[in-house]
Design a protein around this nucleic acid. Structure first.
Lengths: 188, 188
DNA sequence: GCTTTTTTGTTCGGTAATGAACTATTTTAT
DNA sequence: ATAAAATAGTTCATTACCGAACAAAAAAGC
């Protein structure tokens, strides 16, 4: 991507998250973002259609960073290594989330958090989809998937407000409260 | 000035001074500055002819900031207020120098310091020129002017290495070691 | 010495940013 | 309720930035 576009995008994202730290999403005007990013009016609209579009783009930027390795791995379909170490993969994701902490915390601090959570779940569905055990279950697979995904997103939201824990800690909490979903020995 | 030019200039100045903190002026390549500023090659040369030109521009930027109020005041030729409170004017300049401390320290840290000092003296000559008492002196006026200017620049250089002093402190040191030059009662 | 690599400085067609002007919509104030 | 002010979103001619390619000089390696 052109260096100028990259700079503009980053400037807008930075201005936007800085504003989100101080005021809620709906109270932020496009003009404030433009001023904060120190760009021209038409430049903003060349990149983003609306404020909602900006939020969506920022979420996608974050997810692309957080899940980049995982989604790449999925395309290779390395089925043998697919099920072997889910926990380390989750820990890995949590490390990336820790790296994007500043952005995520800003977004989660107000109404925009809802949008973020919904997009987050979409991505997580792809990640967990073929990680869960495939045995026939007494409970519908979609229910289990939704259960795990929601649990994970809420875990992350909680983590962002309780920063004293490491990715390993969080990973441990998550797997200890969901032993059955990833364990082939048991069944729901 | 166009917003893009402003950004580019600031990016180059920032990259340049960051480099000056880590390595000496002559060991810094134009390419390093370009990379640090994250701009295109041709963009750098659209702003600055050479590395020396960049240094000169940075000095001028600093002096414009440090002396902006004083040079403005001079154009008005407010002769009555001109001689009345030199000390507060010097203190004011020292406050501005304190504000540009980061840049100045970087430049002074190596060979580029020599260039800075020479430009600095040029500006200071204009400031002190009509501040010194105009009586006929046993010593040539130009000698006194050079004496004061050099003393002040060296004072600033010393200050940049001994940051524990306030502008008021430095101003006091300076005037206490040069009582005669500004005092109408005495003569060299 | 010589070759190779790095750095410097220039050129230019293509692209993104600019800002001012404009309309339309929403907020705020009175 | 209505006027005024702020915000949203569009358009377009102008300008700065980009990057790749180029030649030339300097530095480094052998």
């Amino acid at each position: 991507m052109d260096r100028r576009q990259q700079k503009t995008r980053q400037a807008v994202f930075r201005a936007f998250t800085n504003l989100l730290e101080r005021k809620s999403y709906s109270n932020i005007s496009v003009q404030e973002i433009i001023d904060g990013a120190n760009i021209g009016r038409s430049t903003f609209y060349a990149h983003f259609e609306t404020k909602d579009d900006l939020l969506k783009s920022l979420c996608e930027e974050i997810f692309h960073h957080v899940f980049s390795d995982n989604l790449k791995k999925e395309t290779t379909h390395d089925f043998s290594a697919c099920h072997d170490d889910i926990k380390s993969e989750i820990t890995h994701i949590l490390y990336h989330i820790q790296g994007s902490k500043k952005y995520i915390k800003s977004i989660l601090s107000c109404e925009s958090g809802y949008i973020f959570m919904e997009y987050f779940k979409e991505y997580l569905c792809k990640v967990f989809d073929n990680k869960l055990r495939m045995q026939e279950l007494k409970i519908p697979f979609e229910y289990i998937l939704n259960h795990i995904v929601c649990d994970f997103t809420e875990t992350v939201r909680w983590w962002m407000k309780n920063e004293k824990y490491s990715p390993e800690d969080i990973s441990s909490f998550f797997f200890n409260t969901n032993p059955l979903a990833f364990n082939k020995e048991f069944q729901f």
